[in-house]
């Protein structure tokens, strides 16, 4: 399978491990990725004008004929929303008037869905089954919204993937609640409260790992975890993995191939436990 790959801006900075692990897992699953040429920012959640947001997405999508895969839920949501708006021929005409390469339709997929599709049940490439690992599936907002392929409020695809890796999904009430990320710079306190509620629930539910599909969620739950612990006076200590990192671990890829050392809360202890368990069996 060959796909166009849209890494998104964060892949160059705060989400480097998302990018690294995505490329590694796709290589291991024989999914060929061709990076979109000269891609631009999708606007994230900070472009208020829908026409502009649509134009930014359309420019990216016009770069390829292939289906486009992105590991970032924000990029994914923006591209998807744009596809829908561009079905309106008036909008399409306006946008194309500005574009150099013209948009004529696109298929957009999230890495999560691509990976789940390429994994068989009892896939023999899963060399390290994550048995008994308690994984809290945290979707955040934009993988499932606006409504599309998955239920916008109670999706189950992450749990499904978790089970395929033979891990044990932990259901979070907050699984599609917001992480607060989009307003964390100007509205720190509000964002912190929201993010901490998710961490606290995962802790209470006994999660060993939280799995995410969005670099902003990851930033809020992982990079900010220590600061939040201090602010709220409660120890959390749960590693937060990108779904590509979790799959990569099960596929037996090494920590450096998955950028595991880049995570703020180290997942190494959890990974080691999985190896020990396998060795015992």
């Amino acid at each position: 399978m060959k796909l166009a790959y849209y890494p998104g801006c964060v892949s160059l900075s705060t989400g480097k491990e998302m990018d690294i692990s995505t490329r590694a897992v796709c290589a291991a699953l024989e999914i060929e990725l061709e990076e979109l040429s000269d891609w631009n920012c999708c606007g994230a959640t900070h472009v208020s004008n829908e026409q502009v947001a649509t134009g930014l997405a359309a420019r990216n999508m016009a770069q390829t004929e292939l289906p486009i895969m992105t590991p970032c839920s924000i990029c994914y949501s923006n591209l998807r929303s744009a596809v829908r708006r561009l079905e309106d021929l008036e909008v399409r005409e306006r946008v194309n008037a500005v574009l150099e390469k013209k948009y004529s339709g696109a298929a957009v997929r999230h890495a999560l869905d691509v990976i789940l599709e390429s994994l068989e049940k009892k896939d023999e490439r899963i060399v390290l089954p994550l048995r008994e690992m308690k994984v809290a599936a945290y979707y955040g907002c934009l993988l499932t919204r606006p409504a599309g392929q998955y239920s916008p409020q109670f999706p189950t695809i992450l749990e499904e993937l978790t089970r395929r890796l033979e891990a044990e999904p932990v259901e979070l009430r907050h699984k599609t609640a917001c992480c607060g990320g989009p307003i964390f710079m100007p509205r720190e306190d509000a964002a912190d409260d929201i993010a901490f509620a998710i961490l606290a629930e995962a802790k209470e539910a006994g999660a060993e790992v939280i799995v995410t599909v969005c670099p902003l969620c990851h930033l809020m739950l992982d990079a900010k975890q220590r600061a939040l612990e201090q602010k709220k006076g409660q120890k959390i200590g749960i590693p937060v993995l990108y779904v590509t990192q979790l799959v990569g671990i099960a596929l037996g890829l090494g920590p450096e191939e998955l950028g595991l050392e880049m995570n703020s809360v180290s997942p190494m202890a959890v990974v080691e436990r999985a190896y020990e368990k396998m060795a015992k069996e």
Binding site: C141, R145, Q153, A177, G180, P182, I183, R187
Partner: peptide, 12 residues
């Protein structure tokens, strides 16, 4: 306006 996190729950 500036407290909206764009989570889209209202919209769905």
């Amino acid at each position: 306006l500036w407290l909206c996190t764009s989570c889209l729950l209202c919209t769905v």
